[in-house]
């Protein structure tokens, strides 16, 4: 069963992203929105081998360029992803 993990907290303010990565399954994906998109700026390569999506409007609002290994999406694509994956887990 695949899960789309949705994060909106900054990776610099708490350990949600670390906890999420620890339990991330093989078929799972990450969707970064809000301040969570700052995770794309980290120099470490912890995310590069994962399936990572980021909300385009949040990237634009923070002037962050989407790296090649991630995919920038809009809301219709967010809806599609929530269907493509069996469950959506929001890290509230």
């Amino acid at each position: 069963m695949s899960t789309l993990h949705v994060l909106s907290h900054s990776p610099f303010s708490d350990t949600r992203l670390d906890s999420c990565l620890r339990i991330l399954g093989r078929g799972d994906a990450l969707l970064l929105c809000g301040d969570a998109v700052y995770a794309l700026q980290q120099q470490s390569s912890t995310l590069e081998d994962k399936t990572v999506f980021a909300l385009e409007e949040d990237l634009q609002a923070r002037n962050i360029e989407c790296p090649q290994w991630a995919v920038a999406i809009d809301y219709p694509a967010f809806v599609d992803l929530s269907i493509q994956y069996d469950k959506v887990n929001s890290w509230l």
Partner: peptide, 10 residues
């Protein structure tokens, strides 16, 4: 529903 989507936090 087929999917539950939760929104919260910042």
């Amino acid at each position: 529903a087929d999917r539950l989507i939760c929104f919260g936090g910042p």
